[in-house]
Amino acid sequence: MAETLSRPQDHREWFAFVLVWGAAALVTAVFCWLLGDIIWHGLSHVSWTFLTTSPENAGRRGGIGPILVSTSLILGVCLAVSLPIGIGTAVLLAEFTSDQSLFGRMTRRSLDVLAGVPSIVFGLFGNAFFCKALGLGFSILSGGLTLACMVLPILIRSTEEGFRAVPASYRLSAAALGLSRSTTLVHLLLPAAVPGLLVGLVLGIGRAIAETAALIFTSGYVDRMPQSLLDSGRALSIHIFDLSMNVAGGDANAYASALVLVVLLLAINGAASWLATYGLHRKIMTV
């Protein structure tokens, strides 16, 4: 390292500087290009009528009203199932088992694998299990349940982190006061862990409404207004896919739907990072 001031070293430093700034500029440029393109082409088509009317002529004209309804129903089913299971598992992992126990390790490992399973495999599984084996058919219920399996790892991970962020003194004080552990959980730990839970919830919602591949063969393609949870319903992401791939001349409405989806997701991500920054570090609270 004696030649730190020699010429080749200087050249290398300069080259690295250019490379690093170049990489950052490239990533920013691609991001602006993508977002700019979608806003530019989509903005002129998005209006209140577009958001509330039914699609006509296979989606070439008309709006996305029923599709938004189906999307939120799928999301509702997904959260109704995944929230209780997710919170329960997170509580168990964070509060009721030690990190070394076999059960905790096994559960955590299987959740890690679950987090990496490709969405199309969730689609296959959902089709085989919920649609065929449980006989739910192509329905909002099957789609929501498939998504619930998919968002569980995210939900559990950040809820668990929320619980771990609660200072140990809370638990010790509660135990010293003779509170039962269930009481401690409900009145002390749960309120304190709410920020982590919210981050998980928001991230889970983000993953769920972005999903396409897992829904094609579980919730189906039908773009009518769904009558019940056993009806097939088309999610927003599938609508974009269908318009751009299968419907000639559907690009304008596909752009507008993509814009709606991106805006939804950006809002959700913004909420998540705001919560993570300001919520998790704020010390609580009045019981």
Binding site: T28, F31, L34, I238, S244, A254, I268
Partner: peptide, 16 residues
């Protein structure tokens, strides 16, 4: 910006 990029759904990337 990178976080936002991570949140954009695959169908939007595909469409673009």
């Amino acid at each position: 910006l990178i976080e936002l990029l991570a949140g954009i759904p695959s169908v939007v990337y595909g469409f673009w």
